[in-house]
Amino acid sequence: MSALLKRSETVIFLVLLAAVIITGLLNPAAWQLSNIFSLLRANVITGIMALGVLVVMISGGIDISVPYFAMAAMYVTILGMLKTDYAGIFLPFVVSTAIGLALGGLNAFFVHTVRMIPMIVTLGTGTMVRGFLLGVIGTSNINRDQMPGQLIDFASTALVKMQAPDGSTIELSAMVLIYVALALVVHFILAHTMIGRGLYAMGGDREAARRAGFNVRRITWFAYCLSGALAGFAGLLYVSMSWLANPRDLAGTEMDLLAAVVLGGASIFGGRGSVLGTMLGVFMLVLVNNSLIILHVSTTWQRVAVGLIVITACAVTAWRDRRAAAA
């Protein structure tokens, strides 16, 4: 029991539970099915990108290029679709994912071969890719009328559809299912494959991992490529769900991703972190924004709240680590 209580997943889950209960008591609207459904839907994009950031962080790195890779992969894919009048769904997602994967390879190259600090590398690649996207490929928004319709239709698929008492329809986006499926895949990789355990081993002690026979080069490439691929996928899904392809979108959200992953108990020094924790961390950020709206607090307070939560969570973690080290 005490072991369970010590896990960061448990702590963040309890905090979340308390937040949900308090919000619901203050405004019962929070517990309405429609609100819960929209909450879940809001997790999808941040969640998928955060999974990639998690994998990199477990390996002992950091990836702040994710949102920029997402936008680049998405925009190139959409432009390609418009040029060729392609009407499928599956292939565009494969292409967008592949572009993200290739860009992730760029990170892996600089991190592994050049041995530069991941933070600086991903800052550089992120800036570069964004600059190339906006400077060479284009800056114009692709709005609802021009967007490939089949993508929008696909992203509008509902898992559950019902009538609310007031006559409006409420639905749960099927994209939540995709998010959960990807989370399960990443969890499976982390917990049940050798490369997954290699990520933890390398994040714990790179030299020892090498001595134990892990191929640290392959693991590094795997981490950054997976992160890039998830970014590419999330990018296309994002514009399909929001009906607007704006290559400037998501800039700055890399900090939210890091915050979510760290809130979920992953260590910025590597070797620690879990999919469940990250999902809870993402949910926490989404919930903060949602709760402020529900409680009629001006949305301008969102950032303040997120900042305070991140600082508090990090302070508590640092305090706990130091107490554990002293004991």
Partner: peptide, 9 residues
Amino acid sequence: QDFSLFGNL
């Protein structure tokens, strides 16, 4: 001397 073990596993 440093055992080459993983403290996080």
